[in-house]
């Protein structure tokens, strides 16, 4: 497992409008493409050879599963900003401003008054 790799995915998708659009259209295919084109590279010349997703990590990213990512301790800022970028407008249009974010908070209510999972690596 690699929480770092999950964070790397979220970070590098969120900062690039083309990756954001691909991830929204085809999450599973985009994860595969990202691994080949970006995830296993340190920079344009150097490979990082040892990083990979577990099945659970891959599934959570394929399903935009913020409840799983929260419990796992992925960095909240990364998936919050990315998923807002993916879904806020659609939800706001259909269910009103901030409806996506408020539904997210509601679904995480069982964590209220508990210690949250750490985002430390």
């Amino acid at each position: 497992m690699s929480k770092y790799y999950v964070n790397k995915f979220l970070y590098s998708i969120d900062r690039d409008p083309e990756w954001v659009a691909r991830y929204k259209d085809d999450p599973a295919g985009t994860i595969d493409a990202w691994e080949k084109e970006c995830g296993t590279w340190l920079n344009s010349a150097e490979k990082t050879t040892w990083l990979s997703f577990t099945a659970e990590e891959r599934h959570a990213l394929e399903t935009y599963d913020y409840e799983w990512l929260f419990a796992y301790g992925a960095h909240f800022f990364l998936y919050l900003t990315l998923f807002i970028g993916l879904f806020d407008e659609d939800w706001a249009r259909e269910q009103g401003p901030l409806s996506y974010q408020r539904e997210w908070a509601r679904r995480l209510e069982p964590w209220t008054h508990k210690d949250y999972p750490s985002v430390a690596l």
């Binding site: 909240f76 800022f77 919050l80 974010q101 908070a105 069982p110 209220t112």
Partner: peptide, 9 residues
């Protein structure tokens, strides 16, 4: 709070 149950209250 960001990404947790107390955000956007």
């Amino acid at each position: 709070e960001l990404g947790g149950p107390r955000m956007f209250g």
